[in-house]
Simulated scan of single mutants.
Amino acid sequence: MKRHERMNALLELLGERGSLEVEEAATALEVSAATMRRDMDALAEQQLLTRTRGGAVLSAVTYDLPIRYKRGHHGDAKQSLARSAAAMVERGSVVGLSGGTTTTEIARALATRPDLAEPGPQPHLTIVTNALNIAYELAVRPQIKTMLTGGVAHSRTFELTGPYSELLLGEVTVDIAFIGANGMDPETGATVHDEAEGRINRLMAQRAGRAVVVTDSSKVGVRCFARIGGPETFDTFLTDSGIADSARREFEERGLPTVLAEPEADEEDGR
């Protein structure tokens, strides 16, 4: 595991547990205690965690970890989800993307899809997003028209929220929206940590002809503070094959069709 990937994973572990001892983190990430101390010290200098005697705790400024530090965690699952999501999009569509690591991967998959990446006199796709990092990545691609909502920037997730975001979303319609979530529970539905982000995510889903909640299976069964919605808001739940059969059945029984992302084909056996 490369250093940046290891630091991503360390921050993810802290996000899940709140605090970690050096030995505990070293065992989980299969490195020496000395290496883990150096990683913790480096992240503490960036104010992404706070060092304690013998370990670290999640810093007060990292309520939700910046996307650039989360890219490597569950990376294979997120890329598989992104490929499957991109395959749902028709050329010429208007696509809504909320903020988040999975939706960021969807944006990258769309930007590099061959039929959407080829040059042309007009954009092949329109993206509506409230995520600063997604807009930043797509703005340099002339084949994609990028519309960024206004609003107040969340310093930890790069998402714009507030009345200006709501005003713009209230004036547009999108063909398909992909909404990320921090938790996905059969009874509660999709949830996030922040109520303002939850409100914007729900509005974006409501403005879509088809609303897809997308998250890797590690979030299934998790409930966070702010609810986005369930079957009354979303048409489809896209996740990976790690979801338990019982959980998938429960989503289906509650009226939310669940689609499993296709894994990447194996070059040796063609699967």
Rank of each mutant, 00 (worst) to 15 (best):
R3I: 13
R6K: 09
L13Y: 00
E21H: 08
E23H: 08
E23R: 11
E23C: 05
A25M: 03
A26F: 05
A26Q: 02
T27W: 09
A28V: 05
A33P: 03
A34L: 14
T35A: 15
R38A: 13
R38S: 10
L43S: 05
A44G: 06
E45L: 10
Q46G: 03
Q47A: 15
Q47C: 06
T50M: 12
G54H: 06
V57A: 12
S59A: 13
S59D: 09
Y63L: 12
L65R: 14
P66F: 06
K70M: 15
R71D: 08
R71I: 10
G72M: 03
H74P: 01
K78S: 11
K78E: 11
S80V: 11
A82N: 06
A82V: 10
R91G: 01
G92V: 10
L97R: 00
S98E: 04
T104I: 05
I106R: 00
A107Y: 06
L110K: 08
T112I: 07
R113V: 04
D115C: 08
L116I: 01
A117H: 03
E118S: 11
G120S: 15
P121R: 01
Q122E: 13
T126A: 10
V128H: 05
V128L: 15
T129A: 00
N130A: 14
N130Q: 14
N130I: 05
L132E: 01
V140W: 05
I144F: 04
I144V: 15
T149C: 11
G151T: 07
A153I: 15
S155D: 13
S155K: 12
F158A: 02
E159G: 02
E159D: 12
G162V: 00
P163W: 13
S165P: 02
L168M: 15
V172M: 03
D175I: 00
I176A: 04
I176E: 07
I179D: 02
G183N: 01
G183A: 04
G183V: 03
E187W: 12
E187C: 06
T188W: 12
A190W: 02
V192F: 05
H193P: 01
E195F: 12
E195W: 09
A196S: 03
R202V: 03
R202A: 15
Q206D: 07
R207N: 02
V214A: 07
T215A: 14
V220E: 05
G221N: 09
V222E: 12
V222R: 15
R227E: 14
I228P: 03
G229E: 10
F234I: 13
D240Y: 11
S241M: 13
A244M: 09
A244Y: 10
S246K: 08
S246F: 06
A247I: 04
A247S: 15
E250W: 07
F251C: 07
F251H: 08
E253T: 09
L256V: 07
E264I: 11
A265T: 13
D269V: 08
G270T: 04
